[in-house]
């Protein structure tokens, strides 16, 4: 935010904003270490764990046969690289990625409008809230057999599992956010002649954005869980989850870990994406400006 300093309406010059004087005779921003301490510590610890994991098998000699169950970060990295380079992983990767995107996408498309409707109508809310709560409280795995019966083994079953995992947190958060909407602001836009649709667009959705983002974060976690669960438990015969399961059966530990890395990377990318989205959508928020 480059206009943060202009909040000073007083005649105090903008440069007098609260930045620290480090005794250097000039006003400086935080030092490099202060600004990056958290990241440095976080990344540093990960590196430390990986290094430890790498060297332990070299120091300790495992009894014969045991090394079948273990692997090292470099081995996992090599396997991962080879699988992508040779292209053998692509079909599985594509299958899981498509199932994930379609399932999550459908849940967003369904949850947002439905959430607004349930949030704004007392009748709908009274009718559907118990149903949604009950559904949401039930472990999704319970539905897998019936989903397999209805949709058969393959893509659609996985999509459905992802969908029912992701849709509820998003739906519940959306309508919680919608119900939280500021009556005054609704009245203001209504007084200027807004239709119901415009009220939703101008007040309800922006107002519930923090809730929706929180819901999206949960939904992404549930969607990834959905992929893994569906593929582990026979929802399909393709996908990264299936690949991991097969590899485990053949004691190919590095392939199992490669799959794990892919899922981790997927979570990180998605969570990062949500963070970027959140930052873009909440530029107007006071907290954002205060914490330069």
């Amino acid at each position: 935010m480059n206009d943060t300093t202009s909040t000073a309406v007083s005649p105090v010059p903008a440069s007098a904003a609260p930045v620290r004087d480090e005794g250097l005779g000039e006003i400086t921003r935080r030092t490099f270490w202060e600004a990056n301490e958290r990241h440095a510590l976080g990344i540093g610890f990960i590196v430390f764990v990986l290094l430890l994991w790498e060297v332990i098998p070299h120091i300790l000699t495992l009894s014969r046969g045991m090394d079948l169950f273990f692997t090292t970060p470099t081995q996992v990295a090599m396997t991962l690289y080879n699988m992508f380079a040779s292209g053998e992983i692509w079909p599985a990767f594509k299958f899981s990625a498509v199932a994930f995107s379609v399932g999550l996408g459908l849940s967003i498309v369904a949850a947002l409008p439905l959430g607004v409707i349930i949030g704004r109508s007392h009748t709908m809310n009274a009718m559907l809230d118990p149903f949604i709560t009950a559904f949401n409280a039930t472990p999704r795995l319970v539905f897998l057999p019936i989903i397999l019966v209805w949709f058969g083994i393959g893509m659609w079953s996985v999509v459905v599992v992802v969908f029912i995992g992701a849709v509820f947190p998003l739906l519940i958060n959306t309508y919680a956010g919608v119900r939280n909407a500021d009556r005054l602001l609704i009245n203001v836009v209504r007084s200027f002649g807004a239709s119901e649709w415009q009220i939703n667009k101008l007040v309800i959705l922006p107002n519930s954005m923090p809730f929706i983002i929180a819901g999206l974060r949960l939904a992404i976690g549930r969607a990834i869980l959905g992929i893994v669960v569906a593929e582990f438990f026979g929802g399909s015969s393709e996908g990264i989850g299936v690949m991991m399961n097969d590899a485990a059966g053949k004691f190919q530990v590095d392939i199992v870990f490669a799959g794990l890395v892919i899922f981790m990377a997927l979570s990180l990318v998605m969570v990062g994406g949500v963070k970027v989205l959140e930052a873009r959508l909440s530029r107007w928020r006071p907290e954002n400006v205060k914490s330069f």
Binding site: L184, N187, V188, V189, R190, S191, F192, P206, W284
Partner: peptide
């Protein structure tokens, strides 16, 4: 409501976003 009228609200009612 109608567009022949407009109100200056006591609590301002600005859209914060």
């Amino acid at each position: 409501p109608g567009q022949d009228r407009a109100m200056v609200f006591q609590e301002f009612g600005l859209l914060p976003w």
